[in-house]
């Protein structure tokens, strides 16, 4: 379980999170929504212990991770698979080496086994023909798919974290990524948290929606509650969704 208890965080003088509190189970399908620069990605980084809060507690599976060292954070981070915005592939490595990277570094598997698994993973995410390409030769959608394959390479985790998985993608590629995320969640039967500002993507994938505005959670509820909310900023944000749902 993930628990945020009155978490405050600032970048220099700019307060990004102001007393954020929520609880989430690993099996849940959660979307964290809000405007750009509203602290969504900060929440994800806090969960992974990549940054520490100024105030408040973050508890992952019963462990307060606030003051843990990098070594102590390793077992906490291993509970998650993360796909960063735009994939975060290593520019100097071809696709197959990017996917093989974690298997080689962490699992220390022999080369034959690694490349067998790389082929299998790339096939699973639908980019088997991109094995030898360099990251700069990939389209935005292929980037995300390869990043998902790399995240899958270290085996089953408790939860997937996606940072803006469809940002900058055309509708067709966006649909493909949504289908892939849904398929993975069903096949692996694990939950995920998606950081996004595209409400329709969140609607297609998630059961729970957390809205951030000015560093505070202004809405936390399910689909039914989202459609009937009276909170004006949330209503403004989901206008397009309401239009598409009514259609």
């Amino acid at each position: 379980m993930i628990i945020f208890d009155d978490v405050w965080f600032s970048y220099g003088d700019r307060e990004v999170l102001k007393g954020v509190s929520f609880q989430a189970d690993f099996h849940e399908r959660i979307a964290v929504l809000g405007e750009s620069g509203g602290g969504k990605t900060t929440i994800l980084k806090l969960i992974l212990g990549l940054i520490s809060p100024d105030k408040g507690k973050i508890i992952i599976d019963g462990v307060n991770i606030n003051n843990l060292s990098e070594e102590e954070l390793i077992p906490i981070r291993r509970k998650f698979s993360i796909v960063f915005q735009e994939g975060a592939l290593f520019d100097s490595l071809p696709v197959k080496e990017n996917v093989a990277f974690l298997m080689r570094e962490i699992l220390r598997l022999p080369d034959e086994e690694i490349y067998l698994k790389v082929r299998e993973l790339l096939q699973r995410v639908g980019v088997s023909d991109a094995e030898e390409l360099m990251p700069e030769e990939l389209s935005g959608g292929m980037h995300r798919r390869v990043a998902i394959a790399r995240a899958l390479a270290i085996g089953k985790t408790k939860m997937f974290l996606y940072d803006e998985p469809t940002a900058g993608l055309d509708p067709v590629n966006s649909e493909r990524i949504v289908a892939l995320i849904r398929d993975l969640a069903e096949r692996e039967s694990i939950g995920f948290m998606i950081i996004t500002h595209v409400v329709y993507v969140a609607w297609q994938l998630c059961d729970r929606f957390i809205f951030l505005k000015d560093g505070q959670i202004i809405f936390d509820g399910d689909k039914r509650e989202l459609l009937s909310t009276n909170i004006q900023p949330v209503k403004d944000f989901i206008k397009e969704l309401l239009f598409r749902v009514s259609e």
Partner: peptide, 18 residues
């Protein structure tokens, strides 16, 4: 610097690579 901005360093840290 570009590895920091592209979250590649974060990726290493997440998977326990120093």
């Amino acid at each position: 610097g570009s590895m920091i901005l592209g979250h590649q360093i974060d990726t290493l840290r997440v998977y326990g690579i120093d």
